[in-house]
Computed example of a mutant assay.
Amino acid sequence: MTEDAGNLADGEARDPAKVLGVLAKEVWLFRWEKRLTYMSLGIVALFYAVLLGFIFFGHVRMCAGGGMFFFESKPHTVADIPVIVALSTVPTLILIALLRYFHHREKKESEEPLPLSAQAAIELVKAVNSGNKQ
């Protein structure tokens, strides 16, 4: 999906401006979905990193000085459970929402003219599929 001088609408469509408009919308949607995915995965990774840090390093204390070294750890308490649940639930919900978006989004059928090569490909696929069903 690049914006080169030679494009798909040249010489194949009844109205190249409409085809270029559709292609521009598709390029924008592709870029938006790519940014959405990267942002969501970054937030999920941040939440899981904070969760692992809280679980493994949240209750560890270490002191070092001249001739002494002190290390202490204590177990998690009941008061830590809501923090752990929140830090694990939020990224899970973000991942579920992202997967549902990509699974359930509808590609609307455009009423704008397609290039002749695309129309021929669609008709060929329909013909092959109807031949396989019989």
Rank of each mutant, 00 (worst) to 15 (best):
G11I: 02
V27M: 15
W32T: 14
A17Q: 15
E12D: 06
A45D: 01
A17P: 12
D10R: 02
V50T: 12
A9R: 01
G42N: 04
D15I: 11
A5G: 03
L52G: 11
K18D: 14
E12N: 03
K34V: 13
K25H: 10
L51S: 06
G6I: 08
G42P: 10
D10W: 01
T37G: 06
D4V: 01
M39F: 11
D15Y: 08
I43V: 15
K18Q: 15
S40L: 06
E26K: 08
W28V: 12
M39K: 05
V19G: 02
L8C: 05
A24V: 00
D10V: 01
I43Q: 07
L23Y: 08
L36R: 14
V44L: 00
S40M: 07
W28G: 05
R35L: 13
G42I: 03
A13Y: 04
K25G: 10
W28K: 15
A13E: 09
Y48M: 05
R35W: 14
A9M: 02
D10Y: 00
D15W: 08
D10Q: 03
E12G: 02
D15E: 12
A9T: 02
N7C: 00
Y48A: 01
K25R: 13
L51Q: 09
A45I: 02
L36P: 06
E33W: 06
Y38H: 12
A5P: 04
L23Q: 10
K18F: 08
A5S: 08
L8W: 03
